[in-house]
Design a binder for these strands. Structure first.
Length: 508
RNA sequence: GGGGCAGUAGCUCAGUGGUCAGAGCAGGGGACUCAUAAUCCCUGGGUCGUGGGUUCGAUCCCCACCUGCCCUACCA
């Protein structure tokens, strides 16, 4: 049995959960569910990133301690993921004790290995912002871009990570593991950045206290990104004294699959592998980079256009239609458009007209021609061959981290089944073997499709499963065996019920 | 400024150094009526961003440019 450890980035609690977060998380969830379906042992991790200046300041504005603030924010993410049917096995918060221990263990190790050194950090500091700016970020005349006030040239003692020492090793790693970072376009981007020269980076702060203290010099705290990345190790037991946890770490690392957005390539594809190397660990095995959902060509975020929250969308369209749209409409890796029109178009064509309608028509004809009892599939049905091909295509796509392709392939089976019904026209024929054969085959397709859509629409999968009279749950089936043609048992009651996905009007 | 990604049919996207560049949706025509005005069949002549170059031949290789976007110390 293979292991599949998949992670999302941990989300910075400064922002409430939005559709961008949901996009990453739903994709990770679908991949996790796919791997469970094929029998892999899965560990699916998400969580929240809770340290840093912005959080501290946000808390202060509310008159709260930082921890009080984050204690209020983390559940908003947990609730959002519960509402989206996210099946994460763990939810990590960087304010947890297990994480503090892991961060101190890892960075202590890097320190021991000689890759951290103290040096003065000098930069342009804005007192109002309480942060440094790079020279080219400043407005003309050396003004803070935020306040428009003069900045000061300040200096403080900081610890630096010797990132520059890893340039050659990183390049070697990229050469030897050409599929570690995917897609290739993002890999090239990261690699060319590395080849362009790496500078050491300041990894601690004395100007703020909301962070994890540096074990060898407690008046410093770690810069939030250095703390955050380590969550991927924390969750599998790194830094624990417990032998069982240590074994768990040995079992799961480095065969991880990090799913990230393209804006954090640098942290995950440059800093993170280097940090692992510096700590004497293998770099992460897989980093899959995805693009963004765009609203009218602009990036989606909390601050701009959108007050679109995941829960708004769920209320409006339902969980599974939203999941389906997020997975089906944008290839994982490039940017895609997100729009109400897009959701509705996809909903009507794929879910209502094709899948939902297929279920409805089959249930009705089984009711009128077979007394509502599902017949056995036809062994030699043309659909059997289609199902085999579709299983192969969908499996390959899911395994390659391409939900869009997997779902596209799956829907070919749905379309072919609608076409097959048109050819045979069982509603015109008298009850008998021919009618039984085509309806049984259509039910068999619905059974297989229910299994294949578990990663995308677990609730819908269950409902189809139940309506065609099957026992158990589709997510408990195991591929590829369960998708072998002929698995639908004759003699089960098929329920005729209201449309699975009522058609929606296109909104103005 | 430096680095990078992207620009293919109305829309969302595939795709390959060489027979007519593809799919889904939308649109048009037809059939049917079991089904959610659903389904099925037929129907896609788009300078493959612009201008050069390499080549017997490029949408796919190289160069420049245009446009959009990203990174350049805390937004998936």
């Amino acid at each position: 049995m293979a292991r599949f450890y998949i992670t999302t980035p941990i989300y910075y609690v400064k922002d409430a959960p939005h559709v961008g977060h949901a996009y990453t998380t739903v994709n990770a969830d679908a991949l996790a569910r796919w791997h469970r379906l094929v029998g892999d042992e899965v560990l699916f991790l998400t969580g929240t990133d809770e340290h840093g200046l912005k959080v501290a300041r946000a808390a202060e504005e509310q008159g709260l301690t930082p921890l009080e603030w984050t204690n209020g924010m983390a559940p908003r993410f947990q609730d959002a993921w519960a509402a989206l049917d996210i099946s994460n096995d763990d939810f990590i918060r960087t304010t947890e004790e297990r994480h503090r221990k892991a961060v101190q263990a890892m960075l202590g190790k890097i320190h021991d290995n000689g890759f951290i050194y103290a040096a003065p950090y000098e930069g342009f500091y804005c007192v109002g912002c309480e942060r440094y700016y790079a020279e080219d970020e400043l407005l003309d005349g050396g003004l803070c871009p935020d306040h428009g006030k003069p900045v000061e040239l300040m200096s403080e003692e900081n610890y630096f990570f010797r990132l520059s020492a890893f340039q050659d090793r990183l390049i070697d790693w990229y050469e030897q593991q050409p599929e570690a970072v995917l897609p290739a376009s993002k890999r090239n981007e990261a690699l060319s950045f590395i080849k362009g020269g790496l500078h050491d980076i300041s990894i601690t702060r004395t100007s703020i206290s909301w962070g994890i203290e540096v074990p060898w010099d407690p008046k410093h705290v770690f810069y939030v990104w250095y703390d955050a990345l380590i969550n991927y190790l924390t969750a599998i037991g790194y830094g624990s004294d417990d032998p069982a946890e240590q074994q768990r770490f040995a079992d799961w690392w480095p065969a991880v699959h990090h799913l990230i957005g393209k804006e954090i390539i640098r942290f995950h594809c440059v800093w993170w592998p280097a940090m692992c190397m510096a700590a004497g660990l293998e770099p992460p095995a897989h980093i899959q980079v995805h693009g963004w959902l765009l609203l009218g060509g602009a990036k989606m975020s909390n601050s701009s256009v959108d007050r679109i929250t995941p829960s708004d969308l769920i209320d409006e369209y339902g969980v599974d239609p939203i999941r389906y749209h997020l997975l089906r409409d944008t290839p994982l890796g490039t940017d895609g458009e997100f729009s109400a029109e897009g959701i509705v178009a996809r909903y009507n064509s794929d879910l209502a007209n094709n899948l939902g309608n297929l279920l409805s028509r089959v249930a009705t004809v089984v009711g009128s021609k077979c007394d509502g009892i599902g017949p056995a599939p036809e062994t030699t049905s043309r659909l059997a061959g289609v199902a085999t091909e579709v299983l192969a295509e969908a499996s390959a796509a899911w395994n390659a981290g391409q939900p869009q392709q997997a779902l596209e392939a799956t829907w070919r089976l749905v379309r072919e089944t609608n076409a097959e019904l048109e050819t045979v026209e069982p509603w015109k024929a008298d009850p008998g073997p021919q009618v039984d054969a085509v309806l049984g085959s259509a039910l068999e397709v619905l059974r297989i499709v229910a299994i294949l859509i578990v990663p995308a629409m677990p609730g819908t999968a269950r409902e189809i499963w139940r309506r065609i009279g099957l026992e158990g749950l589709p997510e408990d089936q195991r591929l590829p065996d369960s998708a072998r043609w002929g698995g639908y048992p004759a003699g089960r009651p098929v329920e005729k019920a209201p449309p699975l996905f009522p058609r929606r009007k296109v909104q103005a």
